[in-house]
């Protein structure tokens, strides 16, 4: 899952060697501002065929939490 999410990050941030970990936060990646965050969420929605709620989008603090939400959604 982390691998696949990493792929979406690379595409959205246009950085082919970007590597993320569960602990990665917005502060760690250059350009991860609120607008980029929405681009990222929408790209992940498309890649995994899921839909985030507004509260989920607001509550995520790092990549690990994103993956946890995603795993719950994909399992459904």
């Amino acid at each position: 899952m982390l691998e696949q999410v990493n792929e979406v990050f690379r595409e959205v941030f246009d950085e082919s060697d970007l590597t993320i970990a569960r602990e990665t936060t917005a502060a760690d990646i250059e350009g991860w501002d609120s607008l980029m965050h929405v681009r990222l969420m929408i790209a992940i929605e498309k890649a995994f065929r899921v839909r985030f709620s507004s509260s989920e989008v607001a509550s995520l603090n790092n990549v690990g939490e994103l993956i946890d939400v995603l795993e719950r959604k994909v399992a459904k």
Binding site: S34, L35, V38, M41, I42, S53, S54, V57
Partner: peptide, 8 residues
């Protein structure tokens, strides 16, 4: 959703 996320 996007309106509430980014006012777009």
């Amino acid at each position: 959703r996007r309106y509430f996320w980014t006012k777009q």
